[in-house]
Amino acid sequence: MEHLIVIVLLSFLAITAVAIVMLHDLVAVVMLFGIFSLLSAVIFLVLDAVDVAFTEAAVGAGISTVLMLGTLALTTPKEKTSPRFAPIPLLVVIITGAALVYGTLDMPRYGDPTAAIHQHVAPRYLERAPRETGIPNVVTAVLASYRGYDTLGEVTVIFTAGVGVMLLLGSPRRQTKRKRGKR
């Protein structure tokens, strides 16, 4: 039953993705991308990843939609339509996809408790993390304690991205358009 819900939601996701690729009105694309993020947040929720669902809902449907709309306001809301049909990229995509689908045939089935991923460190975390850290939410314990270096790196990446945006757009705009002719 749970898997049925996931299947229906994933199908919605696929339909939304097709619409995102096909549409030329970028405002509609961005709004659809918000819907896409919200749908994936619901899927994460059904798949027991509550923390991830939380983040995806706030980030995907909230902040990244606002940022993309802001970019469209600064650039242009219309994509230049290219009428020519491109067979080679389509072929590349289909072949790559077929190869990947062939690769999935050896993958463990959905929800299989004997899959390799569930045999390695995860049981140890689930068993010992609450005792060793005093925190029942294993995701928080692993994030902050067992993989503390990793998270420090991630926070630094966010810091760097913030600094990068400030450097790129923070300084007042120069009249670059005029200067270009004289160069």
Binding site: V66, L74, T140, A144, S145, V155, I158, A161, V165, G170
Partner: peptide, 24 residues
Amino acid sequence: GIFIIELGVGITVAAVMITIFFTF
């Protein structure tokens, strides 16, 4: 330790999100 570093993460993430939006 987890409490403090989560606080650090929260401060940076919130500040970066607000800064990025203000800049745009």
